[in-house]
């Protein structure tokens, strides 16, 4: 599968990455080669091989339903760029 310039722009937008127009062709080439590798892997016969959900042969550990965290708002908010009334402030979100 080969990507076009518009595909790369869309991917960059979804990932919120700013890309210079002049570097676009390089990204198109690099990302396309990643997909080519994926295509190569896909061509392998995997009949009878169970899909692997995780590379570690282990299962998820569970925790008991207990509140173990205490309020550390002041510490977290001391490193935030802007706070008010206990809220983190961000550039205005328009719905």
């Amino acid at each position: 599968m080969t990507l076009g310039i518009d595909d790369v722009k869309a991917i960059a937008h979804l990932a919120r990455i700013a890309i210079d127009e002049e570097t676009l062709p390089t990204h198109v080439k690099n990302l396309s080669s990643v997909l080519a590798l994926a295509d190569q892997l896909k061509a392998t016969d995997t009949d009878g091989v169970e899909p692997m959900a995780h590379p570690l042969d282990a299962v998820q550990r569970l925790r008991d339903d207990v509140v173990t965290e205490s309020d550390q708002r002041e510490k977290f908010q001391s490193i935030a760029p802007a706070v008010q009334d206990g809220l983190y402030l961000v550039p205005k979100v328009v719905e």
């Binding site: 925790r63 339903d65 207990v66 509140v67 965290e69 708002r73 009334d85 206990g86 983190y88």
Partner: peptide
Amino acid sequence: SSQSKIFSGSAIAFGAEPNTQANAVDL
């Protein structure tokens, strides 16, 4: 209706002061 969050040990009581139940994992 659990006591703590799905992936962390923070409380989920309704109506708490803003961000007092938001800890490292939640943030």
